[in-house]
Design a protein around this nucleic acid. Sequence first.
DNA 1: TTAGGTGCAAACAATTTGCCGTGTT
DNA 2: AACACGGCAAATTGTTTGCACCTAA
Lengths: 134, 134
Amino acid sequence: MQGQRFSYQREQIYRAVCASQEHPTAEMVYQRLKPSMPRLSLGTVYRNLHQMAQEGRLVEMEGPVVRFDAVTKPHTHLRCIRCGGVCDLGAMPYDDGLDRKAEESGCRILRHTLVFTGICAACAAEQGEGPVAI
Amino acid sequence: MQGQRFSYQREQIYRAVCASQEHPTAEMVYQRLKPSMPRLSLGTVYRNLHQMAQEGRLVEMEGPVVRFDAVTKPHTHLRCIRCGGVCDLGAMPYDDGLDRKAEESGCRILRHTLVFTGICAACAAEQGEGPVAI
DNA sequence: TTAGGTGCAAACAATTTGCCGTGTT
DNA sequence: AACACGGCAAATTGTTTGCACCTAA
């Protein structure tokens, strides 16, 4: 694996994400570019978005699978990149102030979720190091 | 639409979510119950999970669609329940302390995401009220 | 020249829905 | 009896992948 090459498609995809104010989905990027790039394929959009996310040029939000939680009180979650699981972390001490703070921008907050990404206690204890792919 | 009825399946699904420590997906709930309820269908699991989430008996995490963001610096997002969009809210002031605080439980935090759910400024301004379905 | 990139279509995976028979009330 | 619910299978939707051709380096 030596450095990647220039790609017109990739640059356009990147520009489309930057230009959009709405945190576009892959489909949104595709629809936006299609008029000017009729032969663009959705697979290319996905491939490039993920590639750029891996480089840190973009950020990828949310997981592909919906999970359910019987704890309806506010608390935080840790998504473990080793085992893929999701576990609780208890409430953060400043949880309560977050909503009001956010509402200063004119929106109405109904609830919030704080999701950490990292290595859960179980996986961390299992063995110390190893390549930590973000 | 008048009140819902008792359903053995729904109760078992609820109990399965409560009993699990891993924030199960619909599929996980299904697999867990299948041995004792061989005729249970995945569709029923989805239907009941969503129904209970609407009542507030369960909480549904994460969306079904991955979104991308060109802003790689830490900031928070608001998911609007009216328009379905996602917009930025800027960084919360205590952002920086969150990771270390969370690590007290023995895990290793690589990054975090704070996602608010509510009504975005644009939709809130559009008109005051209306039924706010959570 | 050559490895990375593309378009296309097929494969997968996650979730939703229509239909119709059952069970709760 | 009325209508919510469940099972089943088909349909949607979101995402990934294999392959043959193309192109930047």
